[in-house]
């Protein structure tokens, strides 16, 4: 092909995001460009470590990279708003909303790359050995958090966080080092944790943030007609399409638990939801502080996110 691009990500090639997100997207680009753009996928950190994927796009190690900005705590403060709990109800229209919102700031916060898509996973839930209904239930618990923001939330609630990788989580839970974890629904089955944690707080607890980035140098080197092809594949609609396969897969895990006699899902009342929101308020405050420190108008950015979520009907 006229343009050969390398796409690097850090998940196994069998993870739903590759067959259901990345491959159809690359295929569509190939078709739309009349075969002139060919994208080769390098999964499983073959070209570099997961936290280095932003820099890999910047330095041209890969032309397209799949990045979790949360892996470098403190580097992308605006984007980390997405990690704060109880904001978004689903990951499909949610992805489109995040795309539209973050596009306003992408140029500033990620100046070395073209932010092509936003790809949150299906909102994760709180899974535990003993029931968790209200924030006070977390006090004294050891929790394996999904990311640094959740870790801070856990310590706000009086619990302590246990830093282990997702594959190690099962062991930590079974030997009693951890009592609970936050995780998307079907991943609980994928890692065999369904056999240990039987209590589930059924509310869209948190969203994680993944993005697909394109190296600016690679993009600028394209002729105008191919730039248009890429632009057409970096839209809020594509963010939604890209996110749907994985989100549906995770959501299927929730249904499986509802149908299973071994699992108890608890849906909190409105009053309890209010308690949770109240408990999470300090997270938003410290987010505002971080973002203000970097010279941005935190309130305006937050308001814009809320408005966009509202517009797409995904505000929690």
């Amino acid at each position: 092909a006229e343009v050969e691009w390398r796409l690097s990500h850090w998940l196994p090639a069998t993870h739903p995001i590759q067959p259901q997100g990345i491959e159809p997207w690359a295929e569509s680009i190939k078709e739309a460009s009349g075969g002139r753009i060919n994208i080769t996928i390098f999964p499983a950190q073959q070209l570099g470590a997961a936290p280095d994927h932003y820099d890999m796009a910047r330095d041209g190690i890969a032309d397209v990279t799949y990045v979790n900005p949360g892996y470098q705590a403190g580097r992308f403060p605006i984007a980390s708003l997405i990690e704060i709990p109880f904001q978004v109800t689903n990951a499909t229209d949610g992805a489109a909303a995040m795309h539209e919102w973050y596009a306003q700031y992408a140029e500033k916060e990620m100046p070395d790359v073209k932010v092509c898509m936003m790809n949150p996973h299906d909102p994760g839930a709180f899974h535990s050995k003993t029931p968790i209904h209200v924030p006070a239930d977390v006090s004294g618990m050891n929790v394996r958090p999904a990311n640094a923001t959740i870790a801070r939330f856990v310590s706000l609630l009086g619990g302590s966080s246990v830093q282990v990788s997702a594959p190690e989580a099962r062991e930590a839970l079974s030997k009693g080092v951890a009592d609970a974890m936050t995780f998307p629904w079907n991943s609980v089955y994928l890692f065999g944790i369904d056999q240990i944690l039987h209590q589930h707080l059924d509310m869209p607890f948190y969203a994680s943030l993944q993005t697909l980035l394109i190296s600016k140098a690679s993009y600028e080197a394209l002729p105008d007609d191919l730039k248009t092809v890429i632009d057409d594949h970096c839209t809020p609609e594509w963010s939604k399409t890209f996110s749907t396969g994985w989100a549906d897969w995770e959501a299927a895990g929730r249904q499986k638990m509802i149908d299973s006699p071994d699992h108890t899902l608890y849906e909190p009342t409105d009053d309890e939801i209010a308690l949770w929101r109240e408990a999470a308020a300090p997270l938003l405050d410290s987010w505002k502080k971080d973002v203000t420190a970097k010279g941005y108008d935190a309130d305006a950015i937050y308001q814009s996110y809320m408005d966009t979520l509202e517009k797409y009907g995904v505000k929690y």
Partner: peptide, 14 residues
């Protein structure tokens, strides 16, 4: 240098 400029921190206490 980039670690310094980006203000990257540790995961618990930043």
């Amino acid at each position: 240098e980039t670690t310094m400029m980006n203000g990257e921190g540790t995961s618990d206490l930043r």
